[in-house]
Design a protein around this nucleic acid. Sequence first.
DNA 1: GAGAGCGGTGTTAACGTAAACATCTTACCC
DNA 2: GGGTAAGATGTTTACGTTAACACCGCTCTC
Lengths: 327, 327
Amino acid sequence: MADVAALAGVSAQTVSRVSMGASNVRDETRDRVLAAMQQLGYSPNSAARALRYGQYGTFGVIAHRLARTGESRTVEAVVEAARDHGYTVTLVDVESPSSDDVSAAVARLSHQAIDGLVIIRAETATPDSLLLPPRLPVAVSDSRFVGHHPAVGTDQTGGAQRAVEHLLGLGHRTVHHVTGPEDSRPALQRAEGWRATLTAAGRDVPPPVTGDWSAGSGYAAGRALATQSEVTAVFCANDEMAAGLIHALHEAGRDVPGDVSVVGFDDILLAEHLWPPLTTVAQDFAAVGRELVDLLMRQVRDGEVLTDVHTLVPVRLVVRASTAPPR
Amino acid sequence: MADVAALAGVSAQTVSRVSMGASNVRDETRDRVLAAMQQLGYSPNSAARALRYGQYGTFGVIAHRLARTGESRTVEAVVEAARDHGYTVTLVDVESPSSDDVSAAVARLSHQAIDGLVIIRAETATPDSLLLPPRLPVAVSDSRFVGHHPAVGTDQTGGAQRAVEHLLGLGHRTVHHVTGPEDSRPALQRAEGWRATLTAAGRDVPPPVTGDWSAGSGYAAGRALATQSEVTAVFCANDEMAAGLIHALHEAGRDVPGDVSVVGFDDILLAEHLWPPLTTVAQDFAAVGRELVDLLMRQVRDGEVLTDVHTLVPVRLVVRASTAPPR
DNA sequence: GAGAGCGGTGTTAACGTAAACATCTTACCC
DNA sequence: GGGTAAGATGTTTACGTTAACACCGCTCTC
């Protein structure tokens, strides 16, 4: 900057004014400064700016297994919402959602230059285990943190309820369930919604099969369930597992939806083009992302303290061809 | 920091030493400083550190439509590789891969605190249109930038060749093709590989159908191709479009692979569990991510100038159940 | 024509940290 | 016991930027 100032024959402050786009600079001066910038290849040092300004223009995001699931949808939505507020996003992908890994990610990020932190799927982590830097605005997409940090949750139980009611409404006597991993809060909520809805309808609650969100685990579950002829309807805790399940059912010669109806959860981009197209509970990932960023903005910009805020994003049942009345 | 120093009865420099983990601090002093940090909720200011140190510990990543495709796989791999080198990643998701959008993203990021920049799928952007800050290390996953920036490419033409040869080897007379968007370099390369392989084998080159990477466009292509009984083998430029295509074929009553064999590209996580499980060209996303980060590290750490480096990552044909000899 | 006001520009200081150097204390050696 | 070395701690300074204020010269007003 000093070099640019010297070359343009002005003070550093004037260079600063030009690079900030301030109006009170004579056109002729501005041109001279811009030329000098160009010639010297100057670009402003953002560390110094951040130091001066006290803000970084960046939010941290802790996500889990980015490539899988709706995770990337949420991240995309957060990135987009952050951009709309002029923020960029620093991403940390943790391998497992365990308390240790998430805490390590928090530790890594808290030494980074961030104005706020979004945690997507904290799973087993507990509010106390996080060791967050004090005064760092946080937003979590897990209702378990209500009372500690502002949270945005999808209506998991409502979604499960709608899925099960849809299947019962088609005439199935009961609905089997492939769960997510036991340490996942959304998985537990979906399972709880499934169980409660069956119970409320006075139906048997068959033993659930445990998966791990992956299509492979859905496939394994499907191989187990395919042998049981009384299984006519399965609610899978996410779409990937539903795809794996359908794969196994097809392989075993069972028709979907003729022999078995299948419902997923998430409405991933491929759900519509699986075979058969998958009936599923659509999550509004964009809304979750927007809301998470909004919670951060209210803390960063307005200085609000939001520990008790809890937003619930509604879901929507999308009926496609993977469900039908039982034969 | 000054407050911590005062409370602990030491100088700011000693506080710095403690927070840097320097060894030459008496245990008793360290404990006092740590206690003061705890009490005051001190955490070091990373802008100041970056200013002092001249580095940010962050790479920028420009990606396109994160939620879709292998994109998120590459991003995940980059994030992971960067982490292994102690770097975090700042993500910018551009809506379209147009020159304007990518340039805008570069402009946004170059005002951010980054030590290097990864551009994934620059597509229509040209080296000159990017307006990169001078001296910013860059790595691009697009061979078009060879000579300007170091590049990592997947062996697109080789992958297409293997897909087509696989189908011809099964006995198909020719292979139809659903392309990616025309402004995408990888799409063009895959199409070129397809065309060249057919030509080399002395087969007819049927007119390709243009898609846009989305499953929906594959579905549209499938509806068109399903009516043509001479179509027995289709190579789709990615797995999503293959899924859409298969959906359309199934809907039209055409069996896969009985009537029509289908090959995709990417080997997305769901490819194995589509119905039928999809034969596809597996990209080594992790290798691409690692290589991209490695190119940045060589520039950042060793000061190398790498404009002419071009790494080609090999692909692998994964044969599953969506391909078979023609009836 | 003197004072006020304003646009353009320069000067000073501060943001929080860590390297470099200076100083102090302690332990050890002959 | 004096000298030396090593370890612990403090002081100074600079990183690059911008807010706040100071200044200059011009125009406008009465």
